[in-house]
Design a binder for these strands. Structure first.
Lengths: 160, 160
DNA sequence: CCGCTATAGTTACAATTGAAACTAAATCGC
DNA sequence: GCGATTTAGTTTCAATTGTAACTATAGCGG
């Protein structure tokens, strides 16, 4: 009797969330070590620096939105960057709760170095992909993203 | 004088490693909460259970290979699963260092529930994607993966 | 056989993380 | 105006994680 088992042979390699996770972690880890080596920046710090450099002045909450990191992580990253003199923080005139963030001179200097490196990374990474493939990849990610967001909303989901 | 700045306008949203990371984390988080709610399994445990269920008997090292998790994580996940009575662990005859893992009756039961759920998740997720898109996505991930692996190898990289 | 190196897996410790509690300022309802 | 609720941001605490050290067994060279 070899048939009572449905013998599903579930293969993790073909499971999309798993595949995503493995590749993403490899990519992140690989590049985190570069930021770290070059400027002593951890990923959350790197991200904060990048968005503040591009969109300053900016509140912590706006940084949360733009980086998709929660406020605790942002708060800690900002604190470290301020302590290191890369970021400046001043209270907003109209609302004394928010603190507007901007790059200090030192922070701008680092930012000017960080952006080209990011572009180089992007280039090296997508060297493996044609422009069309890259675009499709990003589109697919967007679709997954909104799909997940939708599922999150509905408390009751197909696999509950 | 508005021109001394190269005004790079670096946009994080278009930065592939970032995009990957955000989407992947959302997906992982969303599904982790389902495993957790349904069986009290954390992601590492879920993964170990999945590969042991499909490929038992298996050593911890083989689980590492198949799940891309490091041996500490695997060791801890296995320990928890054994403690909960889902996994069985016995010494290999020929090599007293390795422990072969397999599902206990209770583990098999959970496994039989877990696999359909995984398929449902996969289905819900790729509902947003056509079969072609899904395939292209996986192919693109593979390409990125080997690209990163290659860059890792060469100690000296384009952006050092 | 015996020391040496390598491998399987675990343990210890420090750093990172997230959930929840917290502080302070703003806004809403009345 | 003023108590109740909301929002910005920080802090605390417990859990998860990774690095490195460790234990135990295997295999290799002589």
């Amino acid at each position: 009797m070899t048939s009572p088992e449905p013998a599903p042979e579930f293969n993790l390699e073909d499971f999309l969330p798993y595949r995503l996770s493995v590749v993403t972690n490899r990519v992140s880890r690989a590049f985190a070590s570069r930021y770290e080596a070059a400027w002593g920046l951890a990923i959350p710090e790197w991200r904060v620096l990048a968005v503040v450099g591009s969109f300053a002045p900016l509140s912590a909450a706006e940084v949360c939105d733009r980086t998709a990191m929660d406020k605790v992580k942002v708060s800690r990253a900002v604190a470290r960057l301020v302590r290191r003199g890369l970021l400046e923080r001043r209270r907003d005139g109209s609302d004394q709760r928010v603190q507007l963030l901007s790059l200090g001179p030192k922070g701008r200097e680092v930012y000017e170095g960080v952006v080209p490196m990011a572009r180089a990374i992007e280039g090296a990474l997508t060297a493996a992909l044609s422009p069309g493939e890259r675009k499709n990849l990003l589109r697919a990610l967007d679709k997954l993203d909104s799909c997940v967001a939708e599922l999150e909303d509905r408390a009751t989901s197909p696999w509950d």
